[in-house]
Protein backbone atom coordinates (compact mmCIF):
# COMPACT_ATOMS: atom_id res chain seq x y z
CA UNK A 1 0.00 0.00 0.00
CA UNK A 2 1.19 3.53 -0.80
CA UNK A 3 2.67 5.65 1.98
CA UNK A 4 2.53 9.38 2.60
CA UNK A 5 5.26 11.47 1.04
CA UNK A 6 5.86 15.18 1.24
CA UNK A 7 4.35 15.74 -2.23
CA UNK A 8 1.09 14.00 -1.30
CA UNK A 9 0.88 15.91 1.97
CA UNK A 10 1.27 19.24 0.18
CA UNK A 11 -1.28 18.18 -2.46
CA UNK A 12 -3.92 17.09 0.06
CA UNK A 13 -3.40 20.33 2.00
CA UNK A 14 -3.79 22.50 -1.11
CA UNK A 15 -6.99 20.67 -2.06
CA UNK A 16 -8.22 21.06 1.53
CA UNK A 17 -7.46 24.79 1.53
CA UNK A 18 -9.30 25.20 -1.74
CA UNK A 19 -12.29 23.29 -0.35
CA UNK A 20 -12.07 25.13 2.99
CA UNK A 21 -12.39 28.43 1.15
CA UNK A 22 -15.44 27.04 -0.65
CA UNK A 23 -16.93 25.75 2.65
CA UNK A 24 -16.51 29.17 4.13
CA UNK A 25 -17.86 30.95 1.02
CA UNK A 26 -21.14 29.03 1.06
CA UNK A 27 -21.71 30.04 4.70
CA UNK A 28 -23.83 33.07 3.64
CA UNK A 29 -25.84 30.91 1.19
CA UNK A 30 -26.58 28.59 4.08
CA UNK A 31 -27.58 31.50 6.31
CA UNK A 32 -30.03 32.86 3.72
CA UNK A 33 -31.49 29.42 3.07
CA UNK A 34 -31.79 28.74 6.80
CA UNK A 35 -33.48 32.11 7.35
CA UNK A 36 -35.98 31.37 4.57
CA UNK A 37 -36.80 27.93 5.96
CA UNK A 38 -36.68 28.81 9.66
CA UNK A 39 -40.19 30.28 10.11
CA UNK A 40 -41.72 26.96 9.01
CA UNK A 41 -39.46 25.11 11.45
CA UNK A 42 -37.48 23.64 8.55
CA UNK A 43 -34.07 25.14 9.39
CA UNK A 44 -32.33 21.72 9.58
CA UNK A 45 -33.36 21.14 5.98
CA UNK A 46 -31.02 23.95 4.90
CA UNK A 47 -28.23 22.04 6.59
CA UNK A 48 -29.16 18.79 4.84
CA UNK A 49 -29.48 20.40 1.39
CA UNK A 50 -25.99 21.92 1.48
CA UNK A 51 -24.19 19.24 3.48
CA UNK A 52 -22.95 17.56 0.30
CA UNK A 53 -20.71 20.54 -0.46
CA UNK A 54 -19.21 20.50 3.04
CA UNK A 55 -18.32 16.81 2.89
CA UNK A 56 -16.87 16.96 -0.63
CA UNK A 57 -13.24 17.41 0.38
CA UNK A 58 -13.23 13.82 1.68
CA UNK A 59 -14.17 11.87 -1.44
CA UNK A 60 -12.30 14.33 -3.68
CA UNK A 61 -9.05 13.90 -1.73
CA UNK A 62 -9.66 10.15 -1.53
CA UNK A 63 -10.00 9.92 -5.31
CA UNK A 64 -7.10 12.16 -6.25
CA UNK A 65 -4.64 10.90 -3.62
CA UNK A 66 -5.21 7.19 -3.34
CA UNK A 67 -3.52 6.63 0.01
CA UNK A 68 -5.25 5.40 3.18
CA UNK A 69 -6.22 8.39 5.31
CA UNK A 70 -6.44 10.84 2.41
CA UNK A 71 -10.20 11.38 2.73
CA UNK A 72 -10.04 11.94 6.49
CA UNK A 73 -7.04 14.24 6.29
CA UNK A 74 -8.51 16.24 3.39
CA UNK A 75 -11.78 16.85 5.17
CA UNK A 76 -10.15 17.57 8.53
CA UNK A 77 -7.78 20.15 7.03
CA UNK A 78 -10.68 21.72 5.14
CA UNK A 79 -12.47 22.07 8.48
CA UNK A 80 -9.37 23.64 10.06
CA UNK A 81 -9.24 26.23 7.28
CA UNK A 82 -12.95 26.91 7.66
CA UNK A 83 -12.58 27.36 11.42
CA UNK A 84 -9.65 29.77 11.10
CA UNK A 85 -11.48 31.78 8.43
CA UNK A 86 -14.29 32.19 10.96
CA UNK A 87 -16.87 29.57 10.00
CA UNK A 88 -20.24 29.51 11.76
CA UNK A 89 -19.80 26.34 13.81
CA UNK A 90 -16.74 27.22 15.82
CA UNK A 91 -15.11 24.43 17.77
CA UNK A 92 -17.48 21.71 16.60
CA UNK A 93 -16.21 22.20 13.02
CA UNK A 94 -13.11 20.16 13.88
CA UNK A 95 -15.13 17.22 15.22
CA UNK A 96 -17.60 17.39 12.33
CA UNK A 97 -14.71 17.56 9.87
CA UNK A 98 -13.03 14.50 11.32
CA UNK A 99 -16.27 12.53 11.34
CA UNK A 100 -17.23 13.59 7.81
CA UNK A 101 -13.79 12.62 6.58
CA UNK A 102 -13.88 9.32 8.40
CA UNK A 103 -17.38 8.69 7.04
CA UNK A 104 -16.21 8.94 3.45
CA UNK A 105 -12.99 7.11 4.31
CA UNK A 106 -15.11 4.13 5.41
CA UNK A 107 -16.36 3.80 1.84
CA UNK A 108 -12.76 3.47 0.63
CA UNK A 109 -11.81 1.14 3.49
CA UNK A 110 -14.70 -1.21 2.66
CA UNK A 111 -13.48 -1.52 -0.93
CA UNK A 112 -9.87 -1.98 0.23
CA UNK A 113 -8.61 1.15 -1.60
CA UNK A 114 -8.74 -0.85 -4.81
CA UNK A 115 -11.86 0.23 -6.66
CA UNK A 116 -12.24 3.84 -7.71
CA UNK A 117 -15.60 3.97 -9.46
CA UNK A 118 -19.30 4.41 -8.92
CA UNK A 119 -19.61 1.59 -6.41
CA UNK A 120 -17.10 3.15 -4.04
CA UNK A 121 -18.67 6.58 -4.43
CA UNK A 122 -22.18 5.40 -3.61
CA UNK A 123 -20.86 3.39 -0.67
CA UNK A 124 -18.82 6.36 0.54
CA UNK A 125 -21.86 8.67 0.26
CA UNK A 126 -23.88 6.19 2.30
CA UNK A 127 -21.28 5.77 5.06
CA UNK A 128 -20.77 9.56 5.21
CA UNK A 129 -24.51 10.11 5.57
CA UNK A 130 -24.83 7.50 8.33
CA UNK A 131 -21.80 8.66 10.35
CA UNK A 132 -22.65 12.37 10.14
CA UNK A 133 -26.32 11.70 10.89
CA UNK A 134 -25.47 9.83 14.08
CA UNK A 135 -23.32 12.79 15.10
CA UNK A 136 -26.22 15.20 14.48
CA UNK A 137 -28.59 13.01 16.48
CA UNK A 138 -26.51 14.10 19.47
CA UNK A 139 -24.97 17.43 18.56
CA UNK A 140 -27.99 19.14 17.02
CA UNK A 141 -30.60 17.25 19.03
CA UNK A 142 -32.01 15.47 15.95
CA UNK A 143 -33.07 12.60 18.21
CA UNK A 144 -35.93 14.78 19.47
CA UNK A 145 -37.60 15.13 16.05
CA UNK A 146 -40.64 13.10 15.06
CA UNK A 147 -39.75 10.05 12.99
CA UNK A 148 -41.23 11.11 9.59
CA UNK A 149 -39.35 14.43 9.73
CA UNK A 150 -36.18 12.58 10.73
CA UNK A 151 -36.52 10.25 7.73
CA UNK A 152 -37.01 13.24 5.44
CA UNK A 153 -33.82 14.82 6.82
CA UNK A 154 -31.90 11.58 6.31
CA UNK A 155 -33.05 11.18 2.68
CA UNK A 156 -32.31 14.80 1.78
CA UNK A 157 -28.86 14.48 3.37
CA UNK A 158 -28.08 11.33 1.42
CA UNK A 159 -29.18 12.94 -1.86
CA UNK A 160 -27.04 16.01 -1.21
CA UNK A 161 -23.98 13.95 -0.25
CA UNK A 162 -24.54 11.71 -3.26
CA UNK A 163 -24.84 14.62 -5.71
CA UNK A 164 -21.81 16.58 -4.48
CA UNK A 165 -19.62 13.87 -2.99
CA UNK A 166 -20.66 11.29 -5.59
CA UNK A 167 -21.75 12.69 -8.94
CA UNK A 168 -19.65 15.87 -8.90
CA UNK A 169 -16.57 14.00 -7.62
CA UNK A 170 -17.02 11.41 -10.37
CA UNK A 171 -17.28 14.13 -13.04
CA UNK A 172 -14.10 15.79 -11.74
CA UNK A 173 -12.42 12.40 -11.64
CA UNK A 174 -13.47 11.75 -15.27
CA UNK A 175 -11.86 14.99 -16.39
CA UNK A 176 -8.65 14.09 -14.53
CA UNK A 177 -8.62 10.62 -16.10
CA UNK A 178 -9.13 12.10 -19.55
CA UNK A 179 -6.19 14.42 -18.91
CA UNK A 180 -4.13 11.30 -17.96
CA UNK A 181 -3.24 12.55 -14.49
CA UNK A 182 -5.24 9.79 -12.79
CA UNK A 183 -5.64 6.14 -13.65
CA UNK A 184 -9.13 4.92 -14.48
Amino acid sequence: MKRWHIRDIILVTIIAIFMGVIFWAIGPVYTILAAALAPAGLQPLANELLLGIWVMAGPLAGFVIRIPGAATLGELLGAVVEMFLGGIWGASTLISGTLQGFGSELGFILTGYKRYGWFTLVLSALTTTIVTFIWDLFRSGYAAYHLPFLLLLFCVRFLSVFIFGGVLTKLINNLLVRAHVLKD
Binding site: A34, A35, Q43, G141
Partner: peptide, 24 residues
Protein backbone atom coordinates in the same frame (compact mmCIF):
# COMPACT_ATOMS: atom_id res chain seq x y z
CA UNK B 1 -25.25 37.29 16.44
CA UNK B 2 -24.39 34.24 14.31
CA UNK B 3 -25.08 31.55 16.94
CA UNK B 4 -28.05 33.58 18.21
CA UNK B 5 -29.72 33.21 14.83
CA UNK B 6 -28.85 29.56 14.31
CA UNK B 7 -29.59 28.48 17.85
CA UNK B 8 -32.98 30.22 17.77
CA UNK B 9 -33.85 28.67 14.40
CA UNK B 10 -32.81 25.23 15.62
CA UNK B 11 -34.81 25.50 18.83
CA UNK B 12 -37.82 26.74 16.87
CA UNK B 13 -37.66 23.73 14.49
CA UNK B 14 -37.28 21.36 17.45
CA UNK B 15 -40.39 22.88 19.02
CA UNK B 16 -42.44 22.64 15.83
CA UNK B 17 -41.26 19.28 14.51
CA UNK B 18 -40.31 17.38 17.61
CA UNK B 19 -41.16 16.72 21.22
CA UNK B 20 -38.14 18.01 23.10
CA UNK B 21 -38.37 19.11 26.74
CA UNK B 22 -37.67 22.70 27.74
CA UNK B 23 -34.49 21.53 29.48
CA UNK B 24 -33.24 19.96 26.25
Amino acid sequence: LVPLFFASALVWSLMLRGDASTHF
